[in-house]
Structures are given as structure tokens and as C-alpha cells.
Amino acid sequence: MKITVIGVGKIKENYLTQAILEYSKRLSRYTKLEIVEVSDEKTPDGASEAEELQIKHMEGERILKQVKEGSFVFALAIEGKMYDSVEFAEQLEKLRTNGKSHLTFIIGGSLGLSEAVIKRSDALISFSKMTFPHQLMRVILLEQIYRAYRITAGEPYHK
């Protein structure tokens, strides 16, 4: 199975870059991982709702250009379904056994995802009702994907 993570914006903090590299290395035992960064738009202070929609639209177009045909797409969104780690592992395994060979996870920018990205997604997934910085979300997502593979393989992992 191949996994692609599409994220808006560049990772600026070294500690996040190091964590992403570590989980990418760990995941290489289980899957082919691709991380795609698309550029973000600067949001002016006091941006109007129309300006924010335009920014999400532009970022969304960049995201959608990176989504491969036939890929099962998870968009990370607060309104998405929440799984515990075992349920998430079971969901990924179910997709694999049903012939889905490519999964794409999308992490939006600071304003969230455009309606077009939400509509293209096959599933919405949420990690919490809280809002997290999108750069940190990459680390959390990769850790949970790694945990899911460990669970599926019956290997021990810290609970």
C-alpha cells in the first residue's frame, strides 16, 4: 500500500522536521510513504470572509492537483469521524483488503480546507475537537499511521 500525505505550507520548526523524518523512517518498513507540500497563501490580518474563502480555494486547487486518480482520500477535518487507534488500524486494513492500494491524507492550512477538497474526499477524519497547528498535525498523523501498522501486524507499541 502507498500512503501520500498532502499538507499545506512548509515545516519551519526543526523539531517537527526531525519527528516527521523519524516516523517516515519507521513507516518505511510497512508502506511506501510520500509527503507532498503545497504552498500556502498569506492571510492578511482582518481578512474578510470572502478573502478567506478565496485563500482556501487557491490552496484547495493546489491540493487537488496532487491527488492521484483512484486514491482513497481522507481529509482531516474537525467535523470528521473520530477513531480510536485500534478502529483506525482496522479501517486502514479494511481498505487494503478491499483493494485500495493508495491512501491519501490531506491536511489543510490555517483556514482549513476548501469545499472542493471536502467534496473530493472519500472520508473525513478528526483527531480531536481541538484545533492543532497544521505542521504539528503531520507528526500526529504519521504517528497514528505508524501505530496502525504496528497494531495490524500484532506488534507491541506503547499504549
Rank of each mutant, 00 (worst) to 15 (best):
M82K: 15
E13Q: 14
A148R: 07
P133Y: 09
T152M: 15
D84K: 00
R138W: 05
V86Y: 09
R147E: 08
T17R: 15
F127V: 10
M1Q: 06
L141I: 01
N98H: 08
S114L: 08
R147V: 11
P44I: 05
L21K: 15
M58K: 13
R138E: 01
R147I: 13
A123G: 01
L136M: 14
S48E: 01
L16A: 08
G60N: 11
G109K: 08
S121T: 00
I11Y: 01
E41M: 10
K94D: 04
F105A: 07
A116H: 11
V36W: 04
T43E: 11
L113Y: 01
L111S: 08
S121Q: 01
T131P: 01
K119S: 03
E79H: 03
S71P: 11
S121R: 03
L16E: 07
I63Q: 04
R29W: 04
I63L: 07
L64G: 06
R29A: 13
G109S: 09
H102Y: 07
Y157T: 04
L95R: 15
K42C: 08
N14W: 12
I6V: 12
I125Y: 00
V139I: 09
G46A: 03
M1I: 09
G7N: 12
S28T: 03
M137Y: 02
L92V: 13
